[in-house]
């Protein structure tokens, strides 16, 4: 076990955990930031997507010891007026909702880096995220709606 200081949603946390503990489980087990979800544990489904210095990453595959003073943003850290959140609500995207935190983090990162992505760019940005309820059609629509906001 070792002490680590991490910066999540602009808040400093100190946790005493094993160095190889994945960020996902630090968020969920230690900090009760349960908005970030477990889906597969091998970086295939994207349910655990968070931002590391603005880049979407799968938090199940990154150890706490590698974070250093990186800035982590989770679903809980998004501002409620984020155009993606607004569009998600307007289009009524979620069904069960379990994958949606990961989907939203991928979509927010996409728009942060690309003001007006085309379909191909949306495919690439969102392809790491599985939605078992099948909301892809609405998510694409919502991303395009957010662009206009």
């Amino acid at each position: 076990m070792a002490l680590f200081q991490i910066l999540i949603n602009n808040q400093k946390y100190e946790v005493d955990v094993e160095a190889n503990k994945p960020l996902l489980w630090v968020l969920r087990d230690e900090l009760s930031l349960t908005g970030t979800k477990y889906g597969c544990g091998i970086g295939q489904c994207g349910a655990c997507t968070v931002h590391l210095n603005g880049t979407p990453i799968r938090s199940c595959g990154i150890s706490i010891s590698t974070l250093g003073d990186s800035k982590i943003t989770t679903i809980e850290g998004l501002k409620s007026d984020n155009p993606i959140l607004k569009a998600w609500e307007e289009i009524n995207v979620p069904q069960c909702g379990y994958c949606q935190a990961g989907q939203i983090m991928s979509a927010v990162a996409l728009l942060n880096n690309n003001e007006n992505p085309n379909d191909k760019e949306i495919d690439v940005a969102m392809n790491g995220n599985i939605c078992r309820c099948g909301t892809y059609y609405r998510m694409r629509k919502a991303i395009k709606t957010a662009v206009k906001k």
Binding site: R28, L33, T34, G35, T36, K37, Y38, T74, I75, E76, L78, S80, L85, W88, E89, N92, P94, G97, Y98, Q100, A101, I104
Partner: peptide, 17 residues
């Protein structure tokens, strides 16, 4: 509208896990 949408979008919706 979906009465649960806000909780899903801000991560506060409580699933089993």
């Amino acid at each position: 509208s979906n009465p649960d949408i806000k909780g899903i979008l801000n991560g506060s919706a409580v699933f089993g896990q």
